[in-house]
Structure formats: C-alpha cells, structure tokens
Amino acid sequence: MPVPSLRPRRGLDPRAKILLVIGCSIVVMSPAGLRFVPFALLLAIGLALGERDWRRAASLPAAAGVMWVLGWWLPLWWPNALTAVVSLACVYLIRFVVAIGVGAHVIVTTSPTQLAAALRIWRIPRPFAVTLAVMLRFFPVVGAEANAVLDAMRLRGLVGAGGLLRHPVLSVERFTVPMIAASLRASEDLSASAILRGLGSRRKPTAMQPPRFATPDLVLVLVTATLTTAALTLPAPLS
C-alpha cells in the first residue's frame, strides 16, 4: 500500500500520458481496433487503480461487459432485426468505452500547467497550447454549472422524459441558456486573474517542474509494449 507522501505525487510525465492516450484512441478506433479492446481495457483499469479511483476501475469493465453481452451474445440468443441493430451499435460503442476510459485518466490527473509545459516542449504553437491547457481548467467549472442547472431544473420539475418528448426544443432551451450564462460568469474571474498573471501572453513561459521522464513512465512503456504484443500475437477474443 503506497503511503501518501507530503510532496504532491509526481505521477506520469504528461507527455507520456498524451502519447499513450492518443495512440490508444487511434489504435482502438481503427478498423482492426477490436483486437486491442480487451488489452486497452486492462490498461484503463490499471490506470484507474493507480490513481485509486475505484469507481472508474469498477465501472469500466462493467460497461464493457454490458456492451459485450449485448453486442456478441444477444443476437445469438434472440435473433431478430432489433437485437441486430442493438448489437451493431454495441460492437461499435465498446471501442468508445475503452478509449474514454484511458482518456479519463489523462483528463483527471493532468494539471493545466503540466499540460501547457508539455505542449511547450513539443513546440505546439502558443494559441493551441494555451487554449488546450485552459480548457482543462474550465471543464470542472462548466461541469459543475451544468450539474447545478440540472439540479435547479429537477427542483422545478422541468426534467423528465415526458417533457423532453413533448417539448424537446423548449427543454433544451431551458437547460442551455442558464448553463451558458452561468458558465460565462463563472469563467470571468478565473480568466481575469489568469490573464493578469501572464497566462497566454507573448512572453516565453518557464516551468517550475519541467516534465521529466521517470521510472513510472518506464513502467508504463513496458506495460503498453507488453499489452500491444499480446494484442498482436494472442488470438483475438472479440473479433
């Protein structure tokens, strides 16, 4: 059991994480991607366990399991047009489950400043590097606003499949307008403070802790290499 240290855990090199997740996404979503799905799933579960997010570690295999049952077994047990459609959808969607599972690790564990530093080292032009890093910071803000709006709608009795079906556009309007207004307001102080502290300026920024390739990253590389080899050599269970 790892003992929580006083200094913040360094975690993986953001560059390694970004390469991993993009690589994973491309491979899993490619035409031959199904072959890699079980192994990428293992990787996603391992990363979730590594950051001690037990819920994600449990829900990923659960979601993939449901897709697998619906996609591969349902049409065998009960063949008809409807199950066939469901099955086709699930065969496609199972890839998303796995790719999102790996992507979630990067989104959750990478801080905006780390991401910006990593993108700078790669000489990604300033507009892209700054915007992507800031987006990482805005996600929890906008997510919280969206949840709060949904809460408020629930208390006013404005959420429900009935209402959505009867007045779909009106329901969407009632969610979108307050959500955008509240998000813009919430982002204002954050933007003002960040810009005054030089974010996004034309100066050349530095990093207090430049990303460094360390032992955990080496472990990640080895694990990924092993899983990839396994995916290419072992008989593919999902195809």
Binding site: V130, T131, F138, S183, A194, I195
Partner: peptide
C-alpha cells in the same frame, strides 16, 4: 481571445 475560445469549446 484564447480564453474565450477555451470557455466556449468547453461549453
């Protein structure tokens, strides 16, 4: 401008 793009992309 960059922060504006970021907030709207996230929304």
């Amino acid at each position: 401008d960059l922060l504006r793009v970021a907030i709207f992309a996230v929304i």
